[in-house]
């Protein structure tokens, strides 16, 4: 029995926070599924089962109460983020490998919930894109519609992986154009249009998925699960970096809006940069964290070799988070700023 005050508690819990994050992902998942097909749900299911299995196994090995810790739903959030960031037609073992690295290595080997210095889902992405770059770049071709059975066959490896199934994402197309001047296109927008990749303001179809991630993020803000600092800074810095390049050479760089709604920008800004465990904890620290992550993500996705830069940007900022926190401690009430510096 707890004898220490306070004797009241707000009706909030870690499982509730994790559930709210899952709920905030639901609209994005729905639109994504409508766009790609049930393979998305298959991946989510696969990742969830694997995550719960690895989580339970690790808890057991660490002699922790399995049922109680499994019920905090933190493994589910990691699993869902992995399923949403990996290509939807990835083979099953790729997803499971990603989940293994996230739950076993990035989470439990570093001390479990609350102790991991790196975002587990981003560790999974980084490991897999380095180990299996080809598979991690196979995104379904635009307008590709496959029946459910065929999607299942591809995911579980009963059917050969045909190159025709996949195609470059808009981000890839731009990068290729940027790197190989041989294409000699006049304008990046022209290129995307010519390949039928461009929708209303970003990648066709995908723009609505990222839009719903934005809505999910707004829901989390409204529920008080996240604060505005990191997403705001992420979006602003990415938009600013994109705007500068775009203003310098609009024929080679696409506009800020395109970048904000392509790839993992919105997921990164609202669901990954806001990870409380691996991110910054002070308000000013979160602004710096978001700023750095947004800027690095832009630089990596435009000038780097990988199709998107969110994962590496977030991991790099994860390394910096403790240092940023140390130098951005808020002023203690009643003390002047200088006095409270530690």
């Amino acid at each position: 029995m707890m004898l220490s005050s306070p004797h009241l508690r707000e009706a909030n819990s870690v499982p509730r926070i994790m559930r709210l994050v899952c709920v905030a992902l639901l609209p994005g998942i729905a639109v994504y599924t409508a766009l790609i097909g049930p393979a998305v749900l298959t991946q989510i299911f696969l990742a969830s089962v694997a995550a719960l299995f690895f989580e339970a196994a690790m808890l057991k090995m660490r002699a922790l109460p399995v049922r109680r810790f499994l019920g905090d739903h933190s493994a589910l959030v990691t699993a869902w983020l992995i399923a949403l960031t990996f290509p939807p037609l990835s083979p099953w073992w790729l997803t499971v490998t990603g989940v293994f690295f996230a739950i076993v290595v990035a989470k439990h080997l570093y001390g479990g919930l609350g102790q991991n210095p790196f975002n587990p889902a981003m560790v999974a992405f980084a490991v897999c894109i380095i180990a299996f770059p080809a598979l991690m770049s196979q995104w379904p071709a635009q307008g590709l519609t496959l029946p459910f059975e065929q999607q299942l066959e591809i995911v579980f490896g009963f059917s050969p992986r045909i190159d025709a199934l996949t195609a470059a994402t808009p981000l890839d197309a731009i990068k290729t154009a940027l790197k190989t001047n041989a294409l000699r296109v006049d304008n990046i927008q022209e290129l995307l249009r010519s390949q039928n990749l461009y929708g209303t303001f970003a990648g066709r179809g995908w723009e609505w998925v990222t839009m719903t991630y934005l809505c999910g993020g707004a829901f989390l803000l409204l529920m008080g699960v996240i604060t505005w600092h990191a997403p705001f800074a992420f979006v602003t810095s990415m938009a600013a970096a994109a705007a500068i390049c775009w203003l310098i050479d609009p024929s080679r760089f696409s506009d800020p809006l395109f970048h904000l709604f392509s790839g993992g920008s919105m997921l990164g800004a609202f669901f990954i940069a806001t990870d409380p465990v691996s991110g910054c904890s002070t308000p000013r620290g979160r602004l710096i964290f978001g700023c750095g992550a947004g800027l690095l993500a832009y630089l990596i996705r435009v000038f780097g070799v990988f199709p998107d830069g969110i994962a590496f940007a977030v991991l790099i900022m994860n390394i910096c988070a403790p240092l940023i926190d140390h130098y951005t401690q808020p002023t203690v009430f009643g003390l002047r700023a200088r006095e409270s510096d530690t």
């Binding site: 909030n12 870690v14 926070i17 109680r68 810790f69 905090d72 933190s74 479990g112 919930l113 609350g114 102790q115 699960v225 604060t227 409380p276 465990v277 904890s281 002070t282 808020p330 002023t331 203690v332 009430f333 009643g334």
Partner: peptide, 17 residues
Amino acid sequence: SPCIRCTACAQACPQGL
């Protein structure tokens, strides 16, 4: 249960701790 550094406590602290 383990602290997840959600900072709800920091947002509630009237002393800005």
